[in-house]
Design a protein around this nucleic acid. Structure first.
Length: 221
DNA sequence: GTCTTTTGAGGAGTTAAGGA
DNA sequence: TCCTTAACTCCTCAAAAGAC
């Protein structure tokens, strides 16, 4: 910036040629010419009453010539990601089909992360060790081949976890009937070595009786 | 002094690999 | 699948060189 100020001084105060100014300032005459043009365009007159920062911003105003790429709709992406089996890769491919000149996958992921960070609405829940167990049938139904019949059969995966430690228990069943559900709980409690504290529904004793008749493991309450 | 072309720096974006 | 990192490419722009 001192060079630009000196160039303007040598031009207006001393009256040197572009070549002479270039030699004096140790720069090319084209550079001298360019700075004088910019100064004229910005209506900068000698003597200069501006700070270096102001002079810089007037000589080199910010340009906006960079290629503008279509931005992905992150609200839509965020909504779609909640759906089953939808991935960022699939959504990016869909975006690129609509906008072939759009951003690449890494930037797509970066924007998604930033969107999530900026729109994070969450509640921190404190779990006391040994107090709770979370249970559910997990995700997609798997299958296995019965070695006796050679036929493929569905396998429903029961998953329980102690939320304080994330300690899991997993067991597969052939169905999701209430008998399997209760048996899964019994096995989980045995696995963890815990004691259930539950409210017993009216039909529980009838279910336990049926489990006894079918020789399945029963927790005696 | 002007115009065109070339060069180099710096920033933004892309790609690929590897670990969690 | 997510995330980080390093190497790379591409683009813009200032500066310089050379022709006229």
């Amino acid at each position: 910036m001192l060079k630009a100020r000196e160039i303007l001084r040598l031009k207006h105060e001393v009256g040197l040629s572009l070549r002479e100014i270039g030699q004096a300032c140790n720069c090319g005459k084209t550079t001298v010419s360019e700075i004088l043009k910019r100064a004229e365009k910005a209506n900068i007159t000698w003597p200069i009453q501006l700070s270096d920062k102001q002079l810089m911003s007037m000589l080199y105003p910010p340009t906006n010539n960079r290629k503008i790429v279509p931005e992905p709709d992150m609200e839509y992406v965020f909504y779609e990601m909640k759906k089953k089996n939808v991935t960022l890769m699939l959504l990016w491919e869909e975006y690129k089909e609509k906008h072939p000149d759009g951003i690449m996958y890494t930037q797509f992921c970066e924007r998604y992360r930033n969107f999530k960070k900026l729109n994070k609405i969450s509640l921190h829940k404190h779990h006391k060790a040994g107090e709770e167990m979370e249970v559910d049938w997990a995700g997609d139904t798997l299958s296995y081949v019965d070695i006796n019949t050679g036929k493929s059969k569905p396998a429903y995966i029961f998953v329980s976890v102690l939320p304080a430690s994330h300690y899991p228990f997993v067991h597969a069943y052939g169905d999701t009937k209430i008998e399997s559900w209760i048996d899964a709980h019994v096995r989980a409690y045995e696995y963890y070595g815990g004691v259930p504290k539950i409210t017993i529904p009216d039909n529980t004793y009838r279910i336990i009786q049926r489990l006894r008749l079918s020789n399945q493991t029963v927790l005696i309450l």
